[in-house]
Simulated assay, not measured.
Amino acid sequence: MAYVQIDGVKYEKELLDLAELHTTGRGEGKISADEAKLLIESAQDGVQVTEIELSTLHYIRKNFEFTDKAAAYFDAELATLGQKG
């Protein structure tokens, strides 16, 4: 697993790259509901969502634009993932 550090905090590179991919090149530059689902699924690729994956998802939510539907879905999933840890 590859990581990047932003302001001294370690994040998962794969998730950040996926968010970047979904917000550049085409469309309105916002993460859609389907793309938000892909991000959550990518974080759930192992036995459990790690602290770094969870931190990365929170970073993505704070630093990338989401459609309203995507934001509602992503926020609900983040709340559920936070309770599982």
Results as ranks from 00 to 15, higher is better:
K62F: 04
I60F: 01
N63F: 04
G46C: 07
K62H: 07
T56Y: 01
L81N: 06
V4E: 11
A19W: 01
H22E: 07
D45R: 14
K84S: 09
L16M: 06
K69I: 11
L57H: 02
A71T: 03
E28D: 11
H58Q: 07
N63Q: 10
Q48S: 11
A79F: 02
L57C: 05
Q44R: 15
L39Y: 01
Y3E: 11
D7S: 12
D34G: 14
H22S: 12
G46V: 07
R26N: 10
S32M: 09
V9S: 03
T24E: 13
A71D: 14
K13A: 03
D75K: 12
L78K: 07
Q5D: 08
G27I: 08
G29F: 05
L18V: 02
D17W: 07
G8D: 08
E20Y: 15
E28K: 12
G46K: 13
I60P: 00
Y73T: 08
L38C: 14
L54N: 02
D75Y: 10
A72T: 05
L81T: 12
Y3S: 04
L21S: 14
G82C: 04
S32K: 15
L57A: 02
I52P: 00
Y73G: 05
G85H: 07
S55L: 03
G85R: 10
L78G: 03
D34N: 14
T80S: 13
L57R: 01
K84R: 12
H58I: 01
E28A: 06
K30S: 12
L18R: 11
L57N: 00
A71V: 04
G29L: 05
L81E: 04
Y11Q: 00
G25T: 04
Q83S: 07
V49T: 11
Y59M: 02
L81I: 13
R61T: 04
M1T: 08
E14W: 10
Y11H: 00
T67F: 06
Q44L: 15
D17P: 04
I40T: 14
